[in-house]
């Protein structure tokens, strides 16, 4: 045998005596993959301002923080930089430019400089376009686990809303309490909808 370390690996398989709530915290620290970087790589300052404003309108600050506080814009920039194919990134950026074109036609200024009421009107129109496309589509193809995107799903506003919801509801401040219960060490099969469970 050349590698005795093979044996060592199992020696760590000690059994934990109790549910290790503290270990959860420790392990999370060890495995954190990255701190979000402040420098954006795809969006320029103007595009970033438009994305930030639109995301905040989709998920606004209410009794809890909104998309801006969850830094959804940084997540969207990461996705554009590292995840999407080139054609999807180009479609997203073109859609963003189109938002400003619409607001200049309707209100004589770029989206971020419009009143919130006018901004909402633009989002309402975009959301309606996506809804109309969706309603005209056949039911989704259930024969495949990964059907190709439909025209409504390729629409810029669908992309933005999709990314905003993911970016917000998977952020540390936006994850709903029911999904935070990951380590409560309990299972309640039929609890009331509201009311916080207690850790055992």
């Amino acid at each position: 045998m050349e590698r005795r370390e093979a044996i060592r690996l199992l020696a760590t398989a000690a059994i934990l005596p109790v549910f290790p709530q503290k270990l959860v915290t420790l392990c999370r620290g060890v495995h954190a993959q990255l701190a979000p970087s402040a420098a954006l790589r795809v969006l320029n300052a103007d595009q970033d301002a438009t994305v930030t404003a639109m995301a905040e309108l989709i998920i606004p600050t209410t009794d809890t923080p909104g998309a801006k506080a969850a830094r959804v814009n940084e997540f969207i920039d990461l996705m554009l930089a590292e995840w999407y194919p080139d054609e999807d990134r180009a479609r997203f950026l073109a859609g963003l430019a189109d938002v400003d074109a619409r607001s200049r036609v309707a209100y004589g200024k770029n989206f971020v400089n419009c009143d919130e009421r006018d901004q909402v009107a633009i989002l309402t129109a975009l959301d309606a376009e996506v809804s109309r496309l969706r309603e005209s589509e056949k039911p989704s193809d259930l024969s495949s686990k990964t059907p190709p995107p439909t025209p409504s799903q390729k629409h810029f506003f669908h992309m933005l809303k999709h990314l905003t919801l993911i970016g917000y509801f998977t952020s540390e401040i936006g994850t709903p309490s029911e999904e935070r219960h990951q380590f409560l060490d309990l299972y309640r099969p039929c609890a009331p909808l509201h009311g916080e469970p207690k850790a055992s």
């Binding site: 392990c27 999370r28 495995h31 954190a32 590292e82 995840w83 998977t170 952020s171 540390e172």
Partner: peptide, 17 residues
Amino acid sequence: VDYIEMVPVWQVRFRGL
């Protein structure tokens, strides 16, 4: 070291995508 079930979604780069 290698078990990662405790890592929450906001700590993975693409948030589960």
